[in-house]
Design a protein around this nucleic acid. Structure first.
Lengths: 223, 223
DNA sequence: ACATCATTCAACAGATTGATTGAATGTTTG
DNA sequence: CAAACATTCAATCAATCTGTTGAATGATGT
């Protein structure tokens, strides 16, 4: 069983596909082809590759079934192959984005504290908001959000989070907050986000604390 | 813009990940590690690789962030890295399975007719049912299915198909059928299946025709 | 400190891949 | 039919990847 499982031909097929994706030029070509059928010359212009080199990489993609060709007069047009190719490309990009965020976070975020800490200070939050390097996520119910929230925050109540993950970019650090240090909504949100591959932190304070500190808010009527 | 887009570092990161996945040994190792933390020795037993070779590939996986390590006494334990790795592996396997079905289908299915035909004859259906090389899908409503259906068929009414795709294996050809040649349910099912990357055909006849031909059925009371 | 075990490192030969060059193919136009 | 064009093929060299060998490292137990 081990042997059957280990030498399953699907591993070879998978490796072949992965190896074909394992070159930046081919990924760039695929990226452009995925946006619509393109001729070789167009692709060379878009990528800056030589014609022969582009053709060579395109042959590789074709061999692996990732693209298909069609002749139109003098030109040969490349289009995406059949099967769940876009899903694979999305998954690949998703993991790459995750890793890049993680690396960026390890470098930029070295403010002395351990990066393993799940929470983020008010100072760091303010800095990152200025840098636009985060997505601020308010996980409180809609009505509380409507009554006032941190600037730039987007609202996805905790109960809806799993179904609305698509709204959150993977390229940025997600900072979740709720009502304050005793509120567990944001901690639950972290668990969901991390399990699905996002890089997430928790803002240790909440909207009420933010308000008390006299910082700018949105959607709040002091009257 | 073209240039910025083309030289986006995400392509390099993606290529690095893909290249690392592009070897059957590493995929097999990952497969085992994904099932739970494992020591190097266990992995060599499971895969049949030499210790040094396994270690070398594991280093590659580690460099790409696909696995992480932890020391426990003499042993070094490998576990899956963080991020949406399993999603990527699933997408890769999914495409490989799709391609393998397609290839198998091109070879085995060469019965003279073009493989581009979407429908499958009764003879071919019977043959493939004997070979167990297909999944037979009944897309009629539940009550009709309950009143009688083709042997081995599974029932997913068309309206539920999109939400229940997970029940269908990608490794086999899916043959959808409904009430007969004039019934469009199975044609709609094909569109959904193909769009999501399955390899699917339509059985041109339906349950009533099958019944008329005197072939074996399940769940049908002639009385 | 020593022997032992699990794992990694270093170095080598053989194979594969990537970019470049120039020739070859197939298609349209004059 | 010849010329012009778009693309592919073939051949080359440098760079990288693979698997094997044996030595080196790190942790454990006597």
């Amino acid at each position: 069983m081990t042997d059957i499982d280990t030498h399953h031909p699907l591993f070879d097929l998978s490796a072949d596909i992965a190896r074909t994706l394992g070159h930046a030029h081919r990924l760039v070509l695929l990226h452009h082809i995925a946006e619509g059928e393109k001729a070789v010359e167009q692709l060379t212009e878009l990528t800056g590759l030589s014609v022969a080199n582009a053709s060579q990489h395109l042959q590789g993609l074709k061999r692996a079934g990732l693209v298909q060709t069609r002749r139109d007069g003098k030109r040969v047009l490349y289009r995406l192959g059949s099967g769940p190719i876009e899903a694979l490309l999305a998954a690949l990009r998703s993991l790459a984005a995750y890793n890049s965020v993680q690396i960026r976070d390890l470098i930029e975020g070295s403010t002395g504290r351990s990066n393993l800490l799940e929470s983020i200070t008010r100072e760091e939050l303010l800095r990152r908001m200025r840098e636009d390097s985060i997505v601020l996520l308010d996980v409180r119910p809609e009505d509380e959000f409507a009554a006032g929230h941190l600037p730039q925050a987007i609202n996805i109540p905790l109960e809806e989070l799993e179904n609305r993950l698509a709204e959150l970019p993977r390229e940025k650090l997600v900072v979740a907050y709720c009502r304050g240090i005793r509120c567990v909504l944001s901690a639950d949100a972290l668990a969901i986000l991390k399990a699905r591959g996002w890089v997430a932190r928790r803002f240790e304070l909440g909207f009420p604390d933010w308000l008390d500190a006299g910082l700018a808010v949105e959607g709040y009527e002091s009257g």
